[in-house]
Design a protein around this nucleic acid. Structure first.
Lengths: 203, 203
DNA sequence: GATTCTATCTTGTCAATGTCTAGATAGAAT
DNA sequence: ATTCTATCTAGACATTGACAAGATAGAATC
């Protein structure tokens, strides 16, 4: 990607906004959310501590834009699954957790509501798009869905999201100790998804 | 509670450690996790900013001790449910989510791994105790459990935890918009738990 | 080409924070 | 009474977020 060839003068970086987002993700992955500060991002991008203010009014805005990037990527991963059948619905769940594992810090930022700007439209749109793909899992959009059907949709998301969060936080360590040797996170996830899967034809 | 009668001199508070934890929870509930700083806690407790250092080596330690308090309370709530039957397993799930709703900020702190001290034994013990009560839900402790059985246990926790997190973050707002008028969080939770329970019966 | 405009940056400032240190205080121990 | 030490106060330092003043450089205008 010939991005590196952008001429950078001191007072006109060229594409500082994108460079700041890239630097933010670099720091997030390398050092964690605690180290993700405006000044650290500015240093990583090689500009002064005041430079980000022109592109991101405050830290919450920068974090929200980065979280939106994460949701776009998640949506793209979920798009790769076809959720017409239960088998493929498990694929969607797997894709969700796989994304969370491979992008642990970014995933945790994405759901860090206290640090994000809930009015940020970029974030809201990206999140809605990703959630829409997950909600499609197991059911086509329904007109006037019953509470039971909404329960199914919510259960699908809740179990996969809960699994991802508990896994990333290390809360499932004792489960893995009890599991057969060599059990991977995806093995356990499949067992979880099988546990909650059921025939839908009867409903 | 005759705690208020403790004589407080400037240099020997009496029970500053407990007072700091109480102040921390007050600030957490009133202003959120972002405002929970060592200096804010010291101000709330009416002492200098250096005073907490004698009781809590750093902020992470204070937050971990407060999170441990939360896990103890959660364990106590879960203890009130009897999980011998599927009906009571739903009660455990309800108790978990009810606790999360009634203690939103504390619950979010409890699972804020990035801010907590993972080596803190008070926290680890309290958390293990609470998790053990949840894990009992749906199955008695098994010797050499199968992956399917571990899947059931994990699914129980994941779905309830995921539901609580998504609810607290406001992510279920669109589900509630589609739901019958007057649907409460506990209504939707029951639908979720029923969806999962139905899956068990069909296997 | 000169001038003006303005987007985009640098530099500085202030208040707040976490952490650490020196020293004051007051209760316990001798 | 003296000493010890747990427990506090007060101060210092580095870093942060946010804001402001002003410098810079490319765009727009004449």
């Amino acid at each position: 990607m010939p991005k590196q060839t952008i001429e950078k003068s001191s007072y006109h970086h060229g594409d500082l906004r994108q460079a700041l987002l890239t630097s933010a993700e670099t720091i997030l992955r390398r050092e964690g959310l605690q180290s993700l500060t405006l000044r650290a991002v500015a240093r990583e991008a090689g500009v002064s501590h005041g430079a980000p203010a022109h592109h991101f009014p405050d830290l919450a805005n920068l974090l929200s834009e980065l979280a939106a990037v994460g949701f776009h990527r998640l949506a793209a991963e979920l798009d790769k699954t076809d959720d017409a059948t239960i088998q493929d619905r498990m694929a969607t769940g797997r894709a969700y957790v796989k994304f969370a594992i491979e992008n642990k810090e970014l995933f945790q930022l994405m759901f860090q509501s206290a640090k994000l700007d809930s009015s940020n439209t970029t974030l809201r749109n990206a999140r809605s798009k990703a959630i829409a793909r997950l909600a499609k899992s197991g059911a086509v959009p329904l007109e006037a869905p019953s509470l039971a059907q909404l329960g199914d949709i919510t259960a699908n998301w809740a179990v996969v999201h809960g699994f991802a969060q508990l896994l990333l936080d290390g809360r499932l360590a004792t489960i893995f100790k009890l599991a057969p040797e060599g059990t991977t996170a995806m093995n356990l996830l499949d067992a979880v998804l099988t546990s909650v899967a059921r025939a839908r034809k009867s409903r």
